[in-house]
Design a protein around this nucleic acid. Sequence first.
RNA 1: GGCCCAAUAGCUCAGUUGGUUAGAGCGCCAGCCUGUCACGCUGGAGGUCGAGGGUUCAAGUCCCUUUUGGGUCGCCA
Length: 592
Amino acid sequence: MGEQLGGLKRTYMCGELTVEYVGKSVVVMGWVNSRRDHGGLVFIDLRDRTGIVQIVFSEQVSKEAFEKVQSVRSEYVLAVEGEVVKRLPENVNSKIPTGEIEIYAKNLKILSKSETPPFPIEDRSNISEAVRLKYRYLDLRRPSMQKNLITRFKLTQAVREFLNDNGFIEIETPMLIKSTPEGARDYLVPSRIYPGKFYALPQSPQIFKQLLMIAGFDRYYQIARCLRDEDLRADRQPEFTQIDIEMSFVEVEDVLDINERMIKHVFKKVLDVDLDIPFRRLSYQEAMERFGTDKPDLRFGMELKDLSDILRESEFNVFKNALKNGGSIRGINVKGAALMTRKQLDELVEFAKNFGAKGLLWMQVLEGEVKSPATKFLTEGELNKILERLEAEVEDLLLIVADKDEVVFDTLGHLRVEMAKRFNLIDESKYEFVWVVDFPLLEYDEEEKRYVAKHHPFTSPKDEDIDLLEKEPLKVRAKAYDVVVNGTEIGGGSIRIHDTELQKRMFKVLGFSEEEAWKKFGFLMEAFKYGAPPHGGIAYGLDRLAMIITGSDTIRDVIAFPKTQNAVCLMTDAPSEVSEEQLKELHIKVDL
RNA sequence: GGCCCAAUAGCUCAGUUGGUUAGAGCGCCAGCCUGUCACGCUGGAGGUCGAGGGUUCAAGUCCCUUUUGGGUCGCCA
């Protein structure tokens, strides 16, 4: 059994001891990072969240402590009382901040023993995700994970600081809410009191924040947990956190402006990075045409170029069909990549097919010739114009896709990023922010055979496009915006509809009958009747933002207890079966 | 739901064309060591090769099924 503290007080954290403390009697507490036993002399590196300090045990200092330390092993929890001593110059460890001093141990308490941990508690070993998640509390003991969670904390502090100073009020909204159509699959919670009825867990506080605006809170924020029952990715967890913000009496520019200032504040506070504001702005249309995506990575060029006009008269069937079907022909220029092998090129074609492209046309621009499966189908004039349009030079690789616009953009957009990664074109030290604005309000859902909201059904159309709502729904642009950094969408929002009539028209376009709309969103429509201010806001993916700021590859590394790709918690084994009694109480029969 | 990668000692991995008793580094255990800090030296323990089935004289290795972890497309307003 471990010893009790017995009144012993910690006086310093391990990482804060420096030469300034030489001569002081101190008490430190922490975990054994490592033990180096030299027989007559034992070194222990003691670790807490602030760092590591070396403790020296020898018979001369304390026979009792020296004898006690013989049994100490990795990850034992110790309290050490001793004197801070300056190390001899030849013994200084310049790799750690406390490396100029050490503690001569006079008194040792073994507060807790530890079995040998399943993996070493250090940053340099890369342990499989499964083992890390099963022993998450040990994984979180590693310095890099501690740093990540502390950075995340600083991030939320900086956000709160800014919003508090700018008149925003933090308000909580319910977790047990009404299930509404549209959007992601809900997590459901059965009601015990009302057999057969369910609450939903919120996908976001969207409707509640709008109701808070109607209630007159004017500026609201919340760091809110959101839940969506959809398939996971490196940057998606079933539960995640949003920085949720809403403001009254504002237009698009007002929202963008205050958010730029907030992001600038946060980056300064957390990373000491000075961002230039205002951020660049791109319309959705322009983002798609130049980068093939609505979340462009602006740290490098390689922009898409439209070749349709050049190939208008082409006899090549691939081009002809694409244009005939209302599509386009576009390409990118991968500088200096011409010398790829045939196998690598074939792999690129396969890569392109992932995004629905039927093929990918490559052109190797070589000294005096262009190697490509397409050259024989092109006139010399066409070829030269393509080279000119893509600013091709010797050793460049041109990649061309002809298809529906949607497929062309998606394929080239992904190829652009993939090639930039392969050829190391990305400056990792940069933060390239951009607002993508003027999103389409609606898109057509082939499965459901109806229009669906691209953002959400409360998003306001642009004033000048309102009249197109019924006539040409796909042409209506929204007062919606996303903030993108380095190719990752970290936040998005919109100015909302605050008018009952317009909201009704919107529901109608979405294919809801009056009754349906009223049944699902009646409380909101009702609220609109009593004086709704113009309002809008934004929501950030806090986890993604933390991922960017810490330079992590996955949001799991900035979440204390994440789930696997199959939405399982390996530590607690959730989800799990529940007792018959629990099910009975909820009037639920499991049908497997 | 589709596609791709991985699974061998506690951890990270190697294991050739199917062929003797499955290896390495780290960790662990024991002994030695008063200046290490990825301590060192000597010795030792440790394996259901993810699981099931098949082919074969013989399977970690080939085939099928399956489970788990990861990546990705669909999906995620």
